[in-house]
Nucleic acid binder design. Sequence first.
DNA 1: GAGTGGTCTAGACCACGCA
DNA 2: GCGTGGTCTAGACCACTCC
Lengths: 240, 240
Amino acid sequence: MDLDRASPIPLYFQIAQRLERLIVEGELRPGSRLENEIALADRLSVSRPTIRRAIQDLVDKGLVVRRRGIGTQVVHGRITRGIELTSLFDDLQRSGRKPETRVLEHRVTDADQRLAETLSVASGSPILHVRRLRLAAGTPIAIMENWLPAEFTDLSSADIQEHGLYQLLRARGVTIRVAKQRIGARIATDTEARQLGVQRNSALVTMDRTAFDSSGTAVEYGHHCYRSDLYSFEVTLVEK
Amino acid sequence: MDLDRASPIPLYFQIAQRLERLIVEGELRPGSRLENEIALADRLSVSRPTIRRAIQDLVDKGLVVRRRGIGTQVVHGRITRGIELTSLFDDLQRSGRKPETRVLEHRVTDADQRLAETLSVASGSPILHVRRLRLAAGTPIAIMENWLPAEFTDLSSADIQEHGLYQLLRARGVTIRVAKQRIGARIATDTEARQLGVQRNSALVTMDRTAFDSSGTAVEYGHHCYRSDLYSFEVTLVEK
DNA sequence: GAGTGGTCTAGACCACGCA
DNA sequence: GCGTGGTCTAGACCACTCC
């Protein structure tokens, strides 16, 4: 195991990556035990806290479980990617299915009471409202409605269609750091069914999200609905 | 801020709890900055790593964001409880709505290929299959199907009805540590609609889950479906 | 008693953001 | 240049599990 101490990538991260690779590639089998912290620290010539930090990353991902007096064991079951802080656009790009966006609506309105509260802006302040249809490989996947505060009202319909919302925000130096989501279900309206190319009264997965940037400010509220035959959410939970 | 150094509760946890209380009670307003690590450590007479560990807990909960050179700021937006590693039974008990369970099915079968793989047991080995209706304050909320490996086939229908699945497992010394869930949606079957007291063709939130104990062994697979008008899932995502 | 992870200390140096 | 968080070290003591 070769660590690069000159690299800007933290040692604990390099170690976590290597251990994760050993697990997903099956070299460390489910149920098997990892070397203990002291031995690992010794062998890699790093301090014990650094090793602990690396292993904690694996715990948070649900790859291993730890017990005092026992050791660290690899969890059974296949690895799932889990929900990440990316947009559907990123998801689709990564999975190689050609994403495409059609902007259905794009206009500036005034924030009503509820929305103003969600975005922590004054009631009545200008809000950009966009409604988009997302397709992958020509197939409609989702309808996405988003509301953004005043500083983003100049985002053009063409930009959004071309680059995706999160990419545009990143280009402006806005990084999403925290997102609070609520996942549910409902029946598609007739309009939605037509736009998504599904039968009337089909079930949709819904996701409502408020996203916050690195200063803790709300930068977006979104209501998305997905074809339930093409999309679902994965979550890995770890007991703290 | 009074820390109890004699307590078995870790210092970092005591500190995290107190900071969290300051935030949810509004003493630390959204957008405001926390004291820096050095000052906090000094004032509480603990080391800096201990303070860091406490603040990291808040970051993981999505309560604060941190930036190098800037500081630690409280995130805007209301606090959400988020998904936790508890059963719906626990959820309902905690929220004070009287939960009630009716066991609709309870029988031991043989594991088919797919289930055997999910639970990491031999194909054809005995499996306990239960199907339950969950109600709160007399209102049906969810239909829950669960499959458990051979060591739990002796759980009686009465026990499950009385205590809930997770409580029974805990009583046997089995603690759920990791769960991998997939959340989606579908249309209710006519039977489900009748049992849940909703109209035909209503939308349901579905959740498929594999749960693992503290040794990383799969101890349960569940397929649950919830009335979409009464239940949804909250997730808080934090950029790593 | 031996081995494991859990907590805690007291420092060090660095990278980043801002004035 | 200064203040912030990010990383890393080298130890210490403890609690728990198993033999």
